[in-house]
């Protein structure tokens, strides 16, 4: 354990209030923090002691609710899991890239929410059975096929990191596609062909150029890039079955 040390931290925070500002600008704050703190702690101290008009989202302070994504020195991060000890000098804090700003560090996630819904992220049962017949059996090996992909906290850091999403906003994007893959891989699910209508398109997996920035940014180690890569492979197999194998389904 480190000993608690005080430190004067300089933050440069992007400010924008549509009520009063015509454009965004940076504001500098100096605040005394403890070395063990995270960037979110510093922002909270600014809000409580220096400037109550600064706005940002946060809740759990343990990297699981997904509220506090922002750009920190240009990288998408959860501010509750970004440690002051890893930074020197002025820390620049901006809203998540690729999303419209509502105010200050608060962005509008509408586009992501809509895309998540489009991929049908729920069980479309292979065989429906009543609750009274008990659970669907699923071996630990079957669980491991999709568990990693079910860990997505919807923080949208992967969208902020994804160069494709920046260029083509119609791209469904890493987290939503990964969620489609999560359900496709679930032994209880039979909805893959339904999801393919959204997933296997040029707004879907084929838009991804496999840069891998999403997996680097992911704070939950979901590895969306691997999900997308696996989906491309299964989509290709679908195409081969459909077009090249005599008697393949139409």
């Amino acid at each position: 354990m480190t000993q608690m040390k005080e430190r004067l931290v300089q933050l440069e925070v992007l400010r924008y209030n549509p009520d009063t500002d015509t454009e965004a600008h940076f504001q500098r704050y100096e605040v005394t923090c403890y070395e063990e703190w995270v960037v979110l702690d510093a922002l909270n101290k600014v809000k409580a002691d220096i400037d109550p008009t600064l706005n940002f989202r946060w809740s759990c302070h343990m990297a699981v609710c997904g509220s506090c994504g922002m750009m920190i020195n240009g990288e998408p991060k959860l501010s509750c899991h970004t440690f002051l000890r890893d930074y020197e000098g002025v820390i620049r804090v901006e809203p998540l890239a690729h999303f419209p700003i509502e105010r200050d560090l608060v962005t509008a996630p509408d586009d992501f929410m809509e895309k998540l819904k489009r991929v049908k992220p729920y069980i479309i049962a292979k065989e429906k059975k009543p609750i009274s017949e008990g659970e669907y059996k699923q071996t630990p090996a079957q669980l491991m096929k999709f568990r990693q992909y079910s860990m997505c906290i919807n923080c949208m850091l992967c969208y902020a990191a994804c160069p494709e999403y920046g260029l083509s906003p119609s791209f469904i994007g890493p987290a939503a596609l990964t969620m489609a893959h999560r359900y496709n891989q679930d032994s209880r699910d039979g909805g893959r062909m339904e999801r393919q209508e959204v997933v296997a398109t040029h707004e879907g997996v084929w838009e991804c150029t496999f840069v891998g920035a999403c997996s680097e940014a992911c704070p939950a180690h979901v590895d969306p890039a691997s999900a997308l890569q696996q989906m491309k492979i299964t989509s290709s197999i679908d195409w081969i079955v459909e077009h090249l194998i005599p008697g393949g389904k139409k």
Binding site: I123, T139, Q142, L143, S150, R188
Partner: peptide, 13 residues
């Protein structure tokens, strides 16, 4: 479980 919650499993599923 029917809605897809990834509960941990025993070896027999």
């Amino acid at each position: 479980e029917h809605w897809g919650c990834p509960w941990n499993r025993e070896a027999d599923g």
